[in-house]
Design a protein around this nucleic acid. Structure first.
Lengths: 346, 346
DNA sequence: GCGTTACGTGTTGACGTTTACACGATGATG
DNA sequence: CATCATCGTGTAAACGTCAACACGTAACGC
């Protein structure tokens, strides 16, 4: 009952009030709350009733102070609106929840300053563990902060000098495969638009691209490589620039979840037809490639699995801190669709 | 330096250690930490140096216990992977961060049980305020839990019997407008696929639809209305069912961010051409409608603004709890594109 | 019937902060 | 020169919980 009406702040009942109401000591209430076996069934029932009556919820701050754990995991993501990370969170949730941990997500909007703020907030709040995706491997401050955390951390797809478990995604091989296929179709100039080389996915994709170009014996033209920012605007701008240049590519790799729609929009705006005028490959978006016409070949990954693996590593580390850092590599998959064809004869 | 190497849990320095290191009392350290003016500049400098040296971060739990606030806002969303909510979070962030609040997002995956768990966790953690989007207005448990929270809450686009500030989105008028336009083009049978009638957006869209049908003097066929679940699969299934029926509609309203791509896929799979075979309207996705061919007319809303408004209401309530519940209604906008045409003659 | 054990419950610091209060030193004032 | 603010700092209590310890009671074995 206690329908303490009204807005805003109202004092929440404490363990003392529950104890008084149930006619026992606070120790007994505490034992009931933490499901200790050493309580008589009848007493337990009375305490439980008092708790329900008062709507008692133990104060996590006080509990954290005593027990040194918060049952809270923080998830740092560069961008909430990016489905890639949201799917990771969802996957991690499925592993963390059964273990009694709450996963709270925080978006840095790709700002290293915000990342530092989050990491400090996480430390202040004594979160039990963290899953972290930094937006820039070359920014020193967040990395320094990670080194100070003092709790287990799992890093997602980044290469940073930190003692942490890491879940990698495979990027090099899949880009190589695609470039090779395009070369076999007869493409000699292939444009790559990727996220920043300051983070592993972008860097690896550029690496894979260069490697495949060399293997196929094609001319290595750095002008064809664009890797600066993960955004639709950037994808559109670079794609436009590539396709309106003097010696444009005959295929475009839009290697990023946000770059993909941007690049596609640029192609559309220029009135080019896929795959007749230009071959096109997207990445990291499981929906878009299937819905547009023609359907578009896409490099994708099982992000929920990334989340599950990351959460698994974290749980292990939470249970026992032993052992060297662990690394897991998860594959990328290529879904071939109708967006690839031989280049138009000049 | 204190480069206390190693994995996992390491003890973090307390205010006592900082005090000892700086040669002052804990009271003084506390005053420095909370930026009280009553500290001599030279002392302040020494304390700050000690803090930096040790990498001190105040224990939020202890602080929360003393001050009764956590500077934490919780954001409950039905589904992280849905861009609609992610954009709200982003908008709310921009208002909350300057006020010193951290926004932590939690996804319930549309489960009322998970919603209750989050609300209880938020209460245990003594979060200062909440922004909440329930997945089912008819589920009693989460609503009861909200009533017990004891902190300011802002509810997003739901009608529930709770004393809270609410940010609504307009749905009825925009659906009415679209249906009317379709009627004017000559459509007499219009299919509606929406989210559940158990939440306001779905219900309002059905209401708007019925109202417009009546106004336009069209036959009201309940068979044409599908409003059960917000998912791509549901959107695809119902669209397929509508279009393969004996007397199919000549236009489809896919009134939900996840329903939209699902419905579109169904249309594609049936080999129907937009707008020649079928007119099509999407909703709540600002990207998809623009990228497919032909571009699709879409009902959309400025979700970041929803987030900003919600955060604003919350901040006000946090500063002064006075006054009756406030309600804000934000508009929907219709972006007309090439997916609407007169129905094919039978 | 006594000693022993096991069990259920109460009592009592701690956890790390903040903040009201106390106190000594310094400088201004009459 | 005595008085009194003012300022900077230290001290100690409190916040709500847990868990180690203490204690009383009942059951049991001998």
């Amino acid at each position: 009952m206690s329908g303490r009406a009204g807005f805003g702040r109202s004092r929440l009942p404490t363990i003392h009030e529950v104890a008084a109401s149930a006619g026992v000591s606070i120790g007994t209430v505490s034992r009931v709350a933490s499901e200790s076996p050493r309580v008589a069934p009848e007493t337990r029932a009375r305490v439980l009733a008092a708790m329900a009556e008062l709507g008692y919820q133990p104060n996590a701050a006080a509990r954290a102070m005593r027990t040194n754990q918060t049952k809270t995991i923080g998830f740092l993501i560069p961008d909430m609106t990016n489905q890639v990370f949201a799917r990771v969170a969802q996957g991690a949730e499925t592993v963390l929840a059964p273990e009694g941990y709450m996963l709270f997500a925080f978006s840095s909007n790709r700002s290293p300053e915000r990342e530092v703020e989050f990491l400090q907030a996480a430390r202040q709040r004594r979160m039990d563990g963290l899953i972290v995706t930094l937006s820039d491997e070359t920014a020193a401050a967040p990395i320094r902060e990670i080194g100070r955390m003092g709790v287990p951390i799992v890093v997602l797809d980044r290469e940073i000098p930190v003692e942490a478990d890491i879940v990698y995604s495979e990027h090099i091989q899949s880009i190589e495969t695609i470039v090779q296929q395009l070369a076999e179709l007869g493409h000699r100039r292939i444009g790559l638009v990727a996220a920043s080389e300051k983070i592993r996915p972008g860097r690896d994709r550029v690496t894979g691209y260069r490697r495949a170009i060399a293997k196929a014996g094609l001319e290595a033209d750095e002008w064809l490589i664009r890797a600066r920012t993960q955004s639709a605007e950037y994808g559109a701008a670079e794609t436009y620039d590539l396709l309106s240049g003097p010696n444009p590519p005959t295929a475009i790799l839009a290697a990023g979840s946000d770059i993909f729609p941007g690049a596609l929009r640029a192609v559309r705006m220029m009135g080019l037809s896929i795959p007749d005028d230009i071959s096109f490959v997207g990445a990291d978006d499981p929906v878009l490639g299937e819905l547009v016409f023609p359907p578009i070949t896409v490099i994708d990954r099982d992000m929920a699995e990334v989340g599950r693996q990351a959460a698994g590593l974290l749980i292990d580390r939470l249970k026992s801190l032993e052992g060297p850092p662990r690394r897991i590599m998860l594959p990328s998959t290529i879904t071939l669709r109708a967006s690839l064809a031989a280049p138009r004869r000049r």
